[in-house]
Each structure stands twice: as C-alpha cells, then as structure tokens.
C-alpha cells in the first residue's frame, strides 16, 4: 500500500519564497545525476515493471520548480520544470524537501509520511508504489551516490542537508 497524503498547508506555495533559478543550468546536473543512479543500480528498473515509462512529477514544496522523472532505462528523463509550465504526468508526488530527501536517503518511511499527511500523491498509485519499492530496494543511499558525484563539496552539502533535516525532524 502506499504512503501518500497531502503536504500540510504551510508547504503550499512555499516555492514562491525562493527566486526561480536558471533552469537551463540545472538540467545537465540532473541528467548526470539520473544517469549515475541508473549506472550504479540497474536492478532498480526491474521493480518498476510496466511503469518505467510513467511520467512522475516530484514536487518539493519549498522549491520554485518541480522535477519531471521518466525512469525508462532506454530514455531516462530527469529535469526541472517551471511550476507555470508543469507537464502532464501519470503520477504526482508532493512533500517537503527534507521528507523527499529522507525517502531517497532510506531514512524515512513513506507510509508513515502518508499517515501523518506529510506526503500527497495523485494519479497512478500503482506506479508510485512501484517507484517507492524500487528506490527502497537500493542498497545504501541514493543521496550519497549523488553527493559522491560532486566529490567533497557534494558530500559536505549532503551532510549539511541531513543535519538540517534531522533538526527539522526533531522539531516537528
């Protein structure tokens, strides 16, 4: 079953507090990230089954853009998209940045986030369940894999994000 629910009210529209970044600068980084994850964890796609062609929109509430993910090993897509031009999707996952980071870091339980209404999912629930299970079966931490791509600065940023996430977890 899935863990999903709605992001709590404070998260709505939080993206407007950050200035929109130049998305074209993000795209090559995101492409590199998703290719690296696919290279390190090719078995991840097996658990997606028929949903590897699904279009997922991932909405971290604090960011001024959303992420589009198509986990097709033959044609991987992971890019930032303006909120104004959000593409059509099969499923949409919305939550706070640190909760989403915790999920890919293997530190958070999706069902618990659903029970507490910290996550919202709409669209194809089965595709989201497959994605959740595929990511959860990745040994170690995808977040660490990604951070490792950028060497010491990447690992330092991840460590800082984890500390911030822990502080937030303790305070809620």
């Amino acid at each position: 079953m899935t863990g999903l629910a709605q992001a709590k009210s404070g998260a709505a529209g939080a993206g407007r507090f950050l200035p929109p970044p130049p998305l074209f600068l993000l795209q090559p980084i995101l492409r590199r990230v998703v290719r690296r994850v696919a290279q390190l964890h090719p078995n991840l796609f097996d658990r997606l089954g028929p949903h590897c062609n699904a279009r997922f929109v991932i909405d971290a509430a604090e960011l001024p853009f959303v992420l589009l993910l198509v986990p097709d090993p033959e044609n991987l897509i992971f890019r930032a998209v303006s909120r104004r031009g959000e593409p059509e999707s099969d499923a949409r996952i919305r939550g706070r940045f640190f909760d989403l980071l915790g999920l890919v870091d293997g530190a958070e339980d999706g069902d618990a986030l659903f029970f507490s209404r910290e996550l919202e999912i709409t669209g194809n629930t089965e595709a989201v369940v497959c994605l959740r299970n595929a990511l959860d079966d990745v040994e170690g931490s995808i977040a660490e894999d990604v951070a490792g791509l950028f060497g010491a600065p990447g690992r330092a940023i991840l460590a800082a994000l984890r500390r911030a996430g822990n502080r937030r977890g303790k305070s809620r």
Binding site: M1, Q6, I121, T122, N124, T125, V128
Partner: peptide
C-alpha cells in the same frame, strides 16, 4: 492483494480534504 494499488485513487478536493 488487499486493496490493489492500481485501483486506489486519492482525490484532493478544493477544501484540502483527500
């Protein structure tokens, strides 16, 4: 399979209810 995910839908309503 109890409550198959393919048949589960969450509909967010304008008042914030799901």
């Amino acid at each position: 399979v109890c409550s198959p995910a393919a048949q589960v839908h969450y509909d967010k309503e304008p008042d914030g209810c799901v």
